[in-house]
Design a binder for these strands. Structure first.
Lengths: 84, 84
DNA sequence: GCATTAAATACGCTACAGCGTATATTTACA
DNA sequence: TGTAAATATACGCTGTAGCGTATTTAATGC
């Protein structure tokens, strides 16, 4: 499944890059959709911790993605999610 | 279940506030754990879109939380998660 | 290999997060 | 209802994200 756990900005960037590429988009094209520069997308995907939530959600929305916020104590749920 | 979907900074703030309170923590105490000011926690929980990922993850870590990044196309999964 | 396209990096600039400190406001409860 | 605790807000300051623009470096295809 395409669900990515993220505990660091780097992991957020990796997940976004995967999703962007799976949709056949270039950083520049994603930048056009979000009113952000190609350089800004680059920074987000690189996991720059100074990236703002405004930027993150602009990109998530453009990629039709969302976050789930949860406790780290999720062993049982994780196992069941493997079914998908 | 305590899983919160977030598509906006505001929803992130709401989820964090819920988790903080469920752990019996004050904003000041959470600030002490994360080296952030009580005012900064206040802003994050209010959903200020300029909040940095550095700040978000400092708080998520202190609260023993994590993010899941996924596609919005999750109807079937969502239903099954209701079992928990 | 070489050309082309994509991604990373650079520079000066403006905007604003987060800081320390302090106060105002709201919430809780005796 | 009054008072203490919790949260929101203010002010001046420093650091840095994101901007436009441009270039460098890396990846892709012929």
């Amino acid at each position: 499944m395409t669900n990515q756990i993220a505990r660091t900005p780097k992991q957020v960037g990796d997940a976004i890059r995967r999703h962007r590429r799976s949709q056949g988009l270039k950083q520049k094209e994603l930048g056009d959709k979000t009113q952000l520069r190609q350089a800004t997308i680059s920074g987000l995907e690189a996991g720059e911790p100074g990236t703002r939530l405004r930027t993150l959600f602009a990109v998530l929305t453009a990629l039709n993605m969302e976050l789930v916020i949860r406790s780290r104590t999720k062993a049982s749920n994780d196992k069941i999610e493997e079914l998908f």
